[in-house]
Design a protein around this nucleic acid. Structure first.
Lengths: 341, 341
DNA sequence: TGAGGTAATGCAAGCGCTATCAATCACGAC
DNA sequence: GTCGTGATTGATAGCGCTTGCATTACCTCA
């Protein structure tokens, strides 16, 4: 299985060139080449030049598995999200992958789906690869939490701010989102809201916040409907049909995602309802379509890129060995008033 | 830096448990534990049981960096796509990540953006991590190709079928898509098409195929417009504005993506045009919104999941050491007639 | 009873790199 | 001249795992 070594051949063998090859060619020790690679400024200019040439000539590509093993730093980061298609987290991941790539770090993708045991599997896989950080959108059950406690790297929970996160958290308060939306809609004069949310901890917290504030402000009962995860266009048709069977039609539908909101708007319009006059619709996430549709969708904007950048800053900070600056970073949110509500 | 060893302590030290710890606890050699982990059926049942217990007791998590170094199999696959947000490739990646996770393989995400040199960087990063396969949507320039030629794993180009791929290709013929769309639209009686495409090799090939067939069938000139990558809702507004300034309005707009098509439909409707009577619109990709909007969007469906599954099958096959079955796997496409054209 | 298998395990040499420690060298200062 | 000082570099012991080969135990069949 192992390719035979051919130490004294001048011809480059089929085998991948290693540090030794480069070192030999540049007439230095492997240690120096390693130093050149990881911290160029400690090697003398002339030496660096020779090494550079040797690398070019051999076509050497560092073996990061070996490097990672020796240094116990893998330069990998695991990102855990439930799914990828039309996901609200895509901006975060996009920014994460882009910014980290500049620093030679790679993103490992972990799709946890809806089953919580998948999350554990993905965390195990990440720990097995000795990633420098795990960045997760998954709410942690007790078992997962125990696992995370043993993770030697930095654990970052994103898109929410739990009371007592293992590691650190970068996100915003879903309860506050719910509250702000409730206040906003009441100010606008709506009276009969329908909350359509996907199952899931975060959506639940938003709903709770909404109901709490709605009633505190003197609003009445709040109707609620559930959709499956992930919340997609397709669900809108069913929700709308169910809605028409309600004793009293809601005057505003608060959706768990812009996609759902858009689907509902389309259904409502197809049924001859004017949006927002006869039925208002509110989204969540401020996806690209929210601002481009007619009517434009009133929604809540989350700066997903900023979440990524804060997370990366935390990783960098952690890498220096310094104690974390904050356990919880609130990036806030913005209610965007547009036409649909 | 290295944590001190504490070989004869009974208490689990702070250090991560290793194979040695497990082996010692189970009173077997490390080799046997390794075998148990990688190929359980070669170890005796009783031994396996002891090992299982030892693993549970120590909380051992295999170090895949070490394993990968020793076996030169990293159980990682690099997936290269231009970007993530509203990407047409998301289904492919989703399926890829899900199916591979079941086999203990992890997806490394590489966002190549639009600059071709980023592709080289990402391939280098992948090779440095000794990934088992690189799966790329990026068209290869000569320099990249040279790099790929040195990649010892399997290189899979997806979402297109180049003449002479390095490694193998899983995709479909973009030229045929263009041709079929041209034929379809002519049959439907459209006469003045406008092609709106993002820059990029694949879009160009589709356009060329369209024009070729359109004119072969006796159609006249074909108007064309460009949008930036990635093609997004936002572009629709500008395209529509430009369109209205044309001497003669097109009767059908062929878009490079469903997102763009949707944006255009919204603009057209807002301007009082009936779709498809006064302006027909055709999309590409059959994204979730294409079937959910009103009017529903006529588009071309690509089975992104199937591309992923075929790619994975190829990787598995490659892993057995057998020579590839086919250099090129055509998953085809399907023109979906709906309401918008 | 012993030769010939087969199944299960152990031994130990790496995989390619990093990091510690020590060695070397040039250069002024004393 | 000698010695401290800082800048470079070399030698080398691992990092934790896999795997070819050797070994042992236990059968089967002549």
């Amino acid at each position: 299985m192992r390719p035979a070594k051919c130490k004294r051949m001048n011809e480059p063998s089929t085998r991948n060139p290693t540090l030794d090859d480069v070192a030999a060619l540049a007439s230095v020790s492997t240690a120096t080449v390693s130093r050149y690679l990881n911290n160029p400024k400690v090697v003398a200019a002339a030496t660096a030049e020779r090494i550079r040439e040797a690398i070019a000539q051999t076509g050497y590509i560092p073996n990061m598995l070996a490097g990672g093993l020796a240094s116990s730093k893998s330069k990998m980061v695991s990102v855990l999200i439930p799914h990828l298609t039309d996901s609200i987290f895509n901006d975060t991941i996009q920014t994460m992958a882009e910014e980290l790539a500049g620093a030679g770090t790679t993103v490992m993708l972990g799709l946890t789906g809806v089953a919580p045991e998948r999350t554990d599997e993905m965390i195990l896989a990440a720990m097995g690869r000795r990633v420098d950080a795990i960045i997760s959108t998954a709410p942690l059950g007790p078992q997962t939490r125990e696992l995370v406690e043993r993770f030697p790297g930095l654990f970052i929970q994103i898109w929410e701010l739990p009371e007592d996160p293992p590691g650190i958290a970068v996100g915003f308060s879903h309860r506050d989102v719910g509250r702000d939306v409730a206040r906003f809609l009441q100010t606008r004069g709506y009276r009969r809201p329908l909350l359509v949310t996907a199952e899931g901890t975060r959506a639940r917290i938003r709903s709770d916040g909404f109901v709490e504030e709605w009633q505190a402000l003197g609003g009445g009962d709040v109707a609620q409907a559930q959709v499956d995860i992930p919340s997609r266009f397709g669900h809108a048709r069913r929700i709308f049909a169910d809605m028409r069977r309600m004793a009293e039609l809601p005057d505003v539908v608060v959706c768990g995602s812009d996609y759902l909101a858009q689907g509902l708007i389309v259904e409502a319009q197809a049924a001859g309802l004017r949006v927002p006059d006869q039925l208002a619709v509110m989204g969540f996430g401020n996806s690209a379509l929210a601002g481009a549709m007619r009517p434009t969708i009133t929604t809540v904007d989350i700066d997903g890129s900023r979440i990524a950048r804060e997370a990366i800053a935390a990783i960098r900070h952690h890498a220096t060995g310094a104690p974390p600056i904050a356990r919880s970073i609130d990036v806030g949110f913005r209610l965007i008033e547009r036409e649909s509500a």
